[in-house]
């Protein structure tokens, strides 16, 4: 899916003065940010801060109430663009009656993978998330961590140039989490732009850049070290409190 012309023009993600309201409740307030090509951008914030809503706007599943979202230079929501985006939802959206292989095959077909390519990609991604030996098992027998890994594998199937991961490593053991992070770095080095959400501070440290989000507002953006430095704090947690106005 690489090499679409539009994508070469303005790679990455741009969010410009975005508001999102559900009825009268304002969930996102004037968010402006940019995710540059090839970086791993982390959205850090507590639950309920608006991370998932922002991510859905970028993934084209919702429309902002105000403002604009661009992915690879294309105004979202855009149906064709969805072929270039890999999305992993916060809750594992899998068909529990079906086997892992059947789930993979189904989602692969939806993004246009068929025949030998599909087979090869399924092999590759399942190797990556360490599920190759469990493909014939129905999802109902999977543990939470296994489902998380399968969701990630599905998001990677079509080699998307933009990867959007909503809380990707919840319930995954440290060893596997490390190997997933290694793979995310590989992907970003080979040209994938990654946007992920997290509320785990040590995971946030691993991102190229971070956006701190609280009550629907982006309170700080920068590399983890920059953020700590300018807040004059030892940890990201402290920095978050400083930017959030809780601690001076």
């Amino acid at each position: 899916m690489h090499g679409e012309q539009t994508s070469q023009l303005q790679p990455g993600i741009k969010v410009i003065h975005v508001d999102k309201k559900f009825g009268k409740v304002s969930v996102l307030k004037d968010i402006t940010m940019e995710v540059k090509a090839n970086e791993i951008f982390g959205l850090l914030g507590p639950s309920g801060s608006g991370k998932t809503t922002l991510v859905k706007l970028i993934a084209g599943m919702a429309e902002p109430s105000n403002g604009e979202v661009y992915v690879s230079g294309v105004r979202m929501p855009n149906l064709n663009m969805l072929n270039n985006i890999g999305y992993m939802a916060q809750s594992d959206a899998l068909y529990s009656e079906l086997t892992a292989l059947e789930n993979l095959a189904f989602f692969a077909a939806l993004v246009g993978l068929n025949g030998a390519v599909r087979k090869q990609r399924i092999e590759e991604v399942t190797q990556l998330v360490n599920l190759a030996n469990f493909l014939k098992r129905p999802i109902a027998t999977y543990s939470g961590g296994m489902k998380r890994r399968l969701s990630l594998a599905i998001a990677l199937l079509h080699r998307p140039e933009i990867l959007i991961l909503d809380e990707p490593t919840v319930g995954i053991d440290p060893v596997l989490r490390k190997s997933i992070w290694d793979e995310l770095r590989n992907l970003s080095q080979s040209g994938t732009t990654i946007l992920l959400t997290t509320h785990v501070m040590d995971e946030a440290e691993k991102c190229t850049r971070l956006g701190m989000i609280r009550d629907g507002r982006l309170i700080a953006v920068g590399a983890p070290d920059e953020l700590k430095q300018s807040a004059g704090s030892q940890s990201l947690e402290d920095a978050f409190l400083v930017y959030g106005g809780v601690r001076k």
Partner: peptide, 12 residues
């Protein structure tokens, strides 16, 4: 189960 929302993140 959230699969509908997930499907809407594909070009379906």
């Amino acid at each position: 189960t959230g699969t509908l929302e997930r499907l809407m993140a594909t070009p379906l």
